[in-house]
Simulated scan of single mutants.
Amino acid sequence: MKRELKLSITIFVVVFLIDQIVKFGFANLAWDVNGPYMSLKLAYNYGVAFSMFAFLEHYLKYIQLVLVLLGTLYLFKNPNVFKEYYIPTALLYAGGLSNILDRFTYGGVVDYFYWHHWFEFAIFNIADVMIDLAVVIIIFKQIKQSREEKKQNEIKS
């Protein structure tokens, strides 16, 4: 368990710091760049994914902190879950807490990747990508586990 904890802390710190440094650059150093397919353009998201719940702008940071606290309590009570999912947990916490810090620091989440070739896509950031990656890893592991259990049940039958 110590190895998993050390690795998850390392992943968390690296992802969190990279995301915050890049966001600082966009928010304070005008790093905007326009490209033919994708642009790097500062935007603030006052809601959650695709700006949903923007009407909760001032309360979202507190709601999200409560959700992180509840998730942390769940992991403390279920260390086997953390041991199985320590990498996606680290990615999820790094991305989530980085976006929450933006809400306290900038008033909204700092976004900057803007895809606009063939279709316009929502503006997003590294933290969002890490959160999505964490969800994909969790789903992949769940599907894999389900298939293994199904095989085991077929062998027993």
Score class of each variant (00 low, 15 high):
1 M>A: 15
3 R>F: 13
4 E>R: 13
4 E>Y: 01
7 L>I: 10
7 L>K: 08
12 F>C: 09
13 V>D: 03
13 V>R: 07
16 F>N: 08
19 D>Q: 07
20 Q>W: 11
23 K>W: 09
24 F>L: 03
25 G>E: 11
26 F>W: 13
27 A>E: 11
30 A>Q: 06
31 W>T: 10
31 W>Y: 14
32 D>N: 06
32 D>T: 06
32 D>S: 05
35 G>A: 08
36 P>E: 13
36 P>W: 12
37 Y>K: 12
38 M>E: 06
40 L>V: 02
41 K>C: 01
42 L>N: 10
43 A>L: 04
44 Y>L: 02
44 Y>W: 01
47 G>L: 02
48 V>F: 02
48 V>L: 00
49 A>D: 04
53 F>V: 02
53 F>E: 00
54 A>C: 14
55 F>K: 05
56 L>E: 06
57 E>G: 03
61 K>W: 02
62 Y>L: 02
65 L>C: 11
66 V>R: 10
66 V>I: 11
68 V>N: 12
69 L>C: 06
73 L>A: 01
76 F>K: 10
78 N>L: 10
79 P>V: 14
80 N>L: 15
81 V>A: 00
84 E>D: 12
87 I>H: 12
87 I>M: 14
90 A>G: 08
90 A>Q: 05
91 L>N: 02
93 Y>I: 04
95 G>P: 00
96 G>P: 00
98 S>T: 11
98 S>D: 15
98 S>L: 12
100 I>M: 01
102 D>K: 03
103 R>D: 06
103 R>T: 10
105 T>F: 12
105 T>V: 15
106 Y>G: 06
110 V>N: 04
111 D>K: 00
112 Y>R: 03
118 W>T: 15
118 W>L: 15
119 F>G: 01
119 F>Y: 09
119 F>W: 07
121 F>V: 14
121 F>W: 14
122 A>C: 12
127 A>P: 07
135 V>G: 04
135 V>I: 13
136 V>Q: 05
136 V>W: 08
144 K>N: 04
146 S>W: 12
147 R>C: 13
156 K>H: 09
157 S>H: 14
